[in-house]
């Protein structure tokens, strides 16, 4: 068989399928547990502060990645921030067109050195702009599970 002679269909060669049957079970971690409990129970964002590097971590971290100190100063963070950047998603993971383009943004939270990637809603996608002020909309307390999806979306302030 030359390099120019290729198998043109999988059925032309012996082939079979197999999977790697594992599921991931993740923990939120020591800092993450506190962050998600506060969202679930109080509809509130928490962050940790590194007083040495003057960094406010949101989502919070147990240690400062820059100076490696243990972080135990916790502060409440406003649910308000601004759109650092955004995209409009047109296709789902299988490549099928979505009924409506889905606005997705990196939201820089006020008073924090980081932010969250999340959906935007209650807005015409045409109107979204970088720098736009937005706020978190939490799900109804009964529906919250201690997940990032306890935040339904962000909307314009």
């Amino acid at each position: 068989m030359s390099l120019l002679h290729r198998i043109e269909h999988p059925r032309d060669a012996l082939a079979w399928e197999g999977d790697m049957p594992t599921l991931g079970r993740y923990t939120a971690g020591i800092a993450g547990e506190k962050f998600f409990r506060a969202i679930q129970e109080h509809g509130q964002f928490l962050g940790t502060v590194c007083p040495i590097c003057e960094i406010v971590y949101v989502p919070p971290r147990l240690y400062c990645e820059q100076c490696f100190e243990h972080l135990d100063e916790w502060i409440e963070i406003s649910p308000i921030g601004w759109v650092h950047t955004f995209t409009l998603v047109h296709l789902d993971l299988d490549g099928n067109p979505l009924p409506e383009p889905l606005p997705l943004a990196f939201i820089q939270l006020d008073g924090a050195d980081g932010g969250l990637v999340h959906f935007l809603d209650e807005i015409d996608p045409e109107q979204i702009f970088v720098g736009m002020p937005v706020e978190a909309v939490f799900k109804d307390p009964a529906e919250r599970k201690g997940s990032i999806l306890d935040i339904a979306y962000f909307r314009p302030v």
């Binding site: 020591i30 147990l62 240690y63």
Partner: peptide
């Protein structure tokens, strides 16, 4: 309960 990163940090620290 720690994340993998938190475990690594504890040992490294």
């Amino acid at each position: 309960q720690e994340t993998a990163k938190e475990l690594a940090w504890e040992a490294t620290h």
